[in-house]
Each structure stands twice: as C-alpha cells, then as structure tokens.
C-alpha cells in the first residue's frame, strides 16, 4: 500500500521536474526575445522547444515522465530595418529571434497548471499515507 503511494509520489515528482524544466525553457526564450546576432547578417537566438516522453520505471512499473529532447523552432526569423545595429546586414536589416511572447505566456500558464496538478496529486498521496499512519496511532 505504502509502496503504491510512494510510487505515486515518485511519479508526481517526475512530473514536477518535467514541468519546471519546461518553465526554464520558457524563461530562456523570453529572456532572449531580443537577442540578435553579433556579426553582420548573423542568425539571432532561435526559440527552444521542449518535448516530453513517458518512460517506464522498472522498479515500480509505473510510467514516469521525462524530457525527450530540447529542440529548436525552425520557423523563419522576423527582420527589422535597423541600419545602426551591429548585426545589420548590407541592406540594414536585422534578423530578430522567432520568439513570440504571447505563445511563451500561454506555454507558461500551461506549465503552471500542470505543476499545480502534480502538487495536488502529491498532497493527496501524502494525506493517504497520513491516514494509514493515523490508524496505527489510534488503535
């Protein structure tokens, strides 16, 4: 019984880890939303993406969640006319990162929601363990 419940805690823990890594990627993207290249015509920061996979934990037989890969977004860069910028090419155009703050915000909200749900699952499992222990105490 306790085994199952501690497996539940372990699974939720892996969920927390996955969602916080996702949050880290989101904040990386947001922080670098204006990071252009250094040399003329160089590529700016490329938006990072994170994908999850479910992974069988052999000790407990449960599916943990883990980071599958951290990839990059292949969508094209926006260009802006800014001849004074050190990254501007011969025509005065600067490539800007393909980060869309609105998209990142939506991603962040979703990560937050999943994180809360995982916390809730841990709280429940803890309450169940506490009930088991209380039974020992009362009898």
């Amino acid at each position: 019984m306790i085994d199952e419940l501690s497996a539940a805690m372990k699974i939720s823990g892996s969920g927390l880890h996955a969602q916080s890594s996702r949050m880290r990627i989101v904040s990386e993207n947001l922080a670098n939303a204006q990071s252009t290249g250094r040399t003329p015509g160089a590529d700016p920061y490329r938006r990072k993406t994170v994908t999850f996979k479910s992974e069988l934990d052999r000790a407990t037989g449960a599916s943990l969640v883990s980071i599958k890969s951290i990839g990059v977004d292949r969508s094209p860069f926006a260009v802006r006319h800014e001849p004074g910028n050190p990254a501007a090419d011969a025509n005065g155009y600067v490539k800007m990162p393909n980060v869309n703050p609105l998209l990142e915000m939506a991603d962040m909200r979703e990560a937050n929601r999943s994180y809360t749900a995982n916390i809730q699952a841990i709280t429940q499992a803890r309450a169940m363990i506490a009930m088991n222990i209380d039974m020992l105490r009362n009898s």
């Binding site: 199952e4 699974i11 969920g15 996955a18 479910s54 599916s63």
Partner: peptide
C-alpha cells in the same frame, strides 16, 4: 485500500503525463 492506492498511482501517472504527446 490496496486497490485505492493503485488507483491513486494511476492518477498520479496521468497527471504527470498530462503534456506527453
């Protein structure tokens, strides 16, 4: 109680994998 614990594990597994494609 065993069955309920197992169900809680299944729920935790679903919640953890809520964003897994």
């Amino acid at each position: 109680a065993k069955w309920l614990s197992l169900r809680q594990t299944a729920i935790a597994q679903n919640v953890a994998n809520a964003n897994t494609p």
